[in-house]
Amino acid sequence: MAIDHTTVERTAHLARIRLEDGDAEDLYGRLNEILGLVDQLQQADVDGIEPMAHPLDLDQPLRPDEVTASDNRDKILRLAPAEEDGCFLVPRVIE
């Protein structure tokens, strides 16, 4: 399933990655090579085979309902690209 420019653009938008005009052609070519590789899957006989999401057949462990997290606020806020009054800042979101 080769993908066209529109699909690549839509996918890049979903992934929130800006495509540079310069490398677009190159990218389409590479993506189609990769998809060519993974398209071998279409020949696989998987009728009646269950999908496998985890390597081990184990159940989700549970955690007691206890407050255990320590306060990392100062450390965390120091990492923020833009911060004010303890909040992370982003360009205004219009609702």
Binding site: V8, L31, L35, L41, M52
Partner: peptide, 25 residues
Amino acid sequence: LVGTYALSEGYYEAYYGRAQRVRTR
């Protein structure tokens, strides 16, 4: 981009679903 595409609507079963079944195999 490949991963986003493989999970996107209309392609999930053909890619991700099949890959998971192949994984079982």
